[in-house]
Amino acid sequence: MPSNRSKLTASLYAMMSISFWGVSFVSTKAVLGKLDPYSLLVIRFGIGALFLLLIVLMQRYRLLVSIKYVPHLMVLGILGVFVHQVLQATALLTIDASSAGWLISFSPIFTVILSILFLHEKMSSMKAIGMVLAITGVLIVSTSRSGQSFHIAMNIGFLLMILSTLNWAIYSVLLKSLKIPYPPIVVTFYMCLLGLILTTPFIIRNKGWESLSLLNQSELAHLLFLGVFVSGIAYWYWAKALEVLEASKVSMFLYLEPIATLIAAVLLLNEKVFLISVAGGIIIIIGVIIVNGQLVPMLFRVLKKKRP
């Protein structure tokens, strides 16, 4: 059984992944004005694969994998990298970054259902309470945006984002259940490489490289961030978190994604922050802590320290 320290470390990995993915909606939206979705993905995967390869070589991991696990890596790469990123990038053509952030937060619902069905994980009353709190927090944050009620038009972008949440739940459960006996960094490298291979024909067809000269320094920085931190480090850390924690628990961190998106929107797009948004964010965090079974031990330690 994993120790409390290893669980805390895994939780930190998951939080970092979510932070990068939350910001990615803003960065993707910033670059899509000049790059088509497929060209953006090719460059992202290329930067990510190169970065991960350098880490693998520096840490002297073996790149060779057994032929037995090649189908596993291909399935994970297609679902978790290629299909997932294509769905999201295409959706962002018709919906804004903030809406995408709110929608992806509902992926844990699918993950919990799949984890119960296929990983035999249990749905405790505390986990259910934490999930309800987290969903409530997401709704509070989303309805507070610009003082307007939360509304997303029923268009193709909305449907694609919903599909991406289901797809991500399937990917997370598979990544946990397949138990590929290789370091997460190696698994992530091959997934990113597969994403690069699958999307390369699109950039050739669209001559996407010609649009790179149109990007300014800020947009190039967004592109570099998407490649290194979103396509590389975030996937790597997510896999590391799933090594220790249950898939349903790791998925709960997705409720924090709207907070990361909101912060990025404020810092990069100068959007306003409302007090009710902060309150909703706190509720989300409390819900995630409850789901991961940390609230009761934390309260116990606090009460113990206060005893004379």
Rank of each mutant, 00 (worst) to 15 (best):
P2G: 12
P2D: 13
T9I: 15
A10R: 10
A10V: 12
Y13L: 07
I18D: 05
I18S: 01
F20N: 03
S27Y: 02
T28D: 01
K29L: 00
A30Y: 06
V31W: 04
G33H: 09
G33P: 06
K34C: 00
D36M: 04
P37I: 07
P37Q: 08
Y38K: 03
S39D: 10
L41C: 07
R44W: 06
A49Y: 10
A49W: 10
L53Q: 12
L53G: 02
L53A: 14
L54K: 05
V56R: 09
V65S: 01
Y69I: 15
I78W: 14
L79Q: 07
V81W: 08
V81C: 13
F82N: 13
Q85V: 06
Q88C: 02
A91S: 14
L92H: 07
L92T: 08
S98V: 06
S98N: 06
S98I: 07
S99I: 11
I109K: 08
F110H: 11
V112M: 10
I113W: 08
S115C: 07
F118G: 07
K122Y: 13
S125K: 15
K127Y: 11
K127P: 00
G137T: 11
L139K: 00
L139G: 01
I140C: 03
I140P: 01
I140Q: 03
T143I: 05
G147I: 08
G147D: 04
F150H: 03
N155L: 03
L160E: 12
I170K: 05
V173E: 12
S177K: 15
S177V: 01
K179D: 15
I180V: 15
P183R: 07
P184F: 11
V187C: 05
F189V: 06
F189K: 03
M191P: 00
M191S: 02
L193Q: 05
G195W: 10
L198G: 11
F202H: 15
I204A: 12
R205N: 12
W209F: 15
E210C: 05
E210A: 13
L212R: 10
Q217A: 14
Q217M: 15
H222E: 07
L223G: 08
S231L: 04
S231R: 02
G232S: 01
G232E: 07
Y235P: 03
Y235K: 01
L245S: 09
L245R: 06
V250D: 06
T261F: 02
T261Y: 03
L262V: 10
N270M: 11
E271G: 03
E271T: 05
F274C: 00
S277I: 06
S277K: 12
I284H: 08
I285E: 01
I289S: 07
G293C: 13
G293Q: 09
Q294K: 14
V296C: 01
